[in-house]
Design a protein around this nucleic acid. Sequence first.
DNA 1: GCGGAATTACGAAGGCCTTCGTTGACAAGT
DNA 2: ACTTGTCAACGAAGGCCTTCGTAATTCCGC
Lengths: 128, 128
Amino acid sequence: MPSPRPRPTDAEIAILRVLWQHGPSTVRQVQQVLGRTRRTGYTTVLKLLQIMLDKGLVHRDTAHRSHVYRARVSEDATQRQLVGDLLDRAFGGARTKLVMHALSDRRATAAELAEIRRLLDQLEGDTP
Amino acid sequence: MPSPRPRPTDAEIAILRVLWQHGPSTVRQVQQVLGRTRRTGYTTVLKLLQIMLDKGLVHRDTAHRSHVYRARVSEDATQRQLVGDLLDRAFGGARTKLVMHALSDRRATAAELAEIRRLLDQLEGDTP
DNA sequence: GCGGAATTACGAAGGCCTTCGTTGACAAGT
DNA sequence: ACTTGTCAACGAAGGCCTTCGTAATTCCGC
């Protein structure tokens, strides 16, 4: 039985987001994307990726000199994990409360609200 | 300008939830509630509450021998902060995606879905 | 082959979180 | 007053996260 993955740390999530968005990348590529928002040193990113490799969060291709890393956990699965974790930890499972905060906290656009409606329709359609 | 509060840690959230639910409590009361799910030592809870006092997360009444702690941050504000933080960190602001995970991850009940619909109606009603 | 540039590997520091042991103060009952 | 139990305070340990400096390695152009 595989041990449940611990929730990725903040820095790990930041890196995963780069990999999800840009696909397999070298350390330098990740560092340059990250550097646009945070000043993050090259070796810092390298070390993080090595740790993430140990944890199984990323896969590494060492065929070439510059190793290429790619996410080993999917964006969907990770986001689901994070939301579920927050739901349990801070909301005691009160889904609607979480959703309310997500929608009313900062102004949601009409398009976003419409999309939620579509999701609701679909969810209710499953169990008529 | 007050510095933005750092996000409460896991243990801090657990304690805040007890205070939100039970109201002002002594260390022992908090520890007993917490002890139902985790085995958490008395001095551990005490230390955490002292740290949270330093951080301004709780207020303390030392009138009696057993000090009484109460939450100084509201449940709503804290939950809003946590959701907003997760939204930025893991979703790049994609609200609908967060909501989708919250609703479809584990099966939501019909009542929950109906409540979300009411929320949507209300939100759209604000800007006709 | 050699020197230089880029990369990986390694270790360690600093900080925060969490936990707990110990100590000293205090209160109540005997 | 003495004992017993409860409590607050404090320090410290251990772990993880994040960062970075330094050394070792590899590749490339010359």
